[in-house]
């Protein structure tokens, strides 16, 4: 199968989040970056598993500057065969979706994988935009994917359950927890990744119509009120009368 995995770069999960330039820019100073966990742990690994079982090629694609190559090389070390970087800042979900759709439109990918969301902007938009640009079916929050005789059976997470569906490729999906287990690249993978192709391509024109104009921090809690562990009636009273949540 011809598989495309969209990977994005995000601050690592414990990164300190703050803003500069009048709260108009994310403060990148000292921030370590990682491959978005949903892209790496679930989307990429399931694509590699399918390739190992059925044959084919896994291509990883990222929209970003040359500094992202280190993250793209990690995707190759985990087991992607080749990679593409679209040389532009990933300024919005629609920009990223537009770039990837422009690249993928004439490549006959069977399945295009995205993560269910990026852990920075939490939009869950790229997958469904990409599907619409390419005119393909889209399955979101996929926690199980099997291919039998070319036909896909898919479980999509919904509130309190799953929808079990079946369809023929090509399609786009977003990957959720459960789709695969995280893989740690081994030394051989890391060495081989250095020789695998990573091609930078030019971006196409696209105007963003949704922009982050300012950032702020959530209101801080006013401080914890400690309750005597012997007196749970007092906690219940506070939850009932003060917080009014029970």
């Amino acid at each position: 199968m011809n598989l495309l995995v969209c990977i994005s770069k995000t601050p690592e999960t414990t990164a300190k989040i703050d803003f500069v330039n009048d709260s108009k820019e994310f403060n990148t100073e000292g921030v370590q970056y990682i491959m978005n966990p949903y892209d790496e742990w679930y989307a990429l690994v399931r694509a590699i598993e399918l390739k190992e079982a059925l044959g084919g090629t896994v291509t990883a694609i990222n929209v970003g500057p040359a500094a992202n190559d280190i993250i793209i090389r990690k995707a190759l070390a985990i087991g992607a065969d080749e990679a593409v970087r679209i040389d532009a800042e990933a300024s919005s979900a629609s920009f990223v979706a537009k770039q990837i759709s422009a690249y993928a439109s004439d490549k006959s990918f069977d399945i295009i994988f995205t993560g269910k969301e990026s852990i920075d902007y939490n939009g869950s938009l790229v997958g469904s935009m990409l599907a619409e640009y390419l005119g393909l079916p889209f399955l979101s929050y996929v926690s199980k994917l099997d291919i039998n005789d070319g036909k896909a059976t898919v479980s999509c997470d919904i509130e309190g359950g799953v929808e079990l569906m079946s369809l023929n490729p090509p399609f786009v999906l977003s990957a959720a927890k459960g789709l695969a287990e995280q893989r740690i690249p081994n030394m051989r993978g890391i060495m081989m990744a250095k020789r695998k192709p990573l091609n930078a391509v030019e971006a196409v024109e696209h105007n963003d119509s949704t922009r982050v104009v300012r950032y702020s921090m959530p209101p801080e809690k006013s401080g914890v009120k400690l309750v005597d562990p012997e007196n749970m009636d007092e906690l219940v009273r506070l939850l009932h009368e003060e917080a009014k949540v029970i």
Binding site: A97, S124, G127, S128, S140
Partner: peptide, 23 residues
Amino acid sequence: DDSRSKALLGRLAVKLDASAVSG
């Protein structure tokens, strides 16, 4: 904002040439 809209929002934004915010 739920599992259904996660699949719809981006498609609608492209179809309608609209700005989109989820959640």
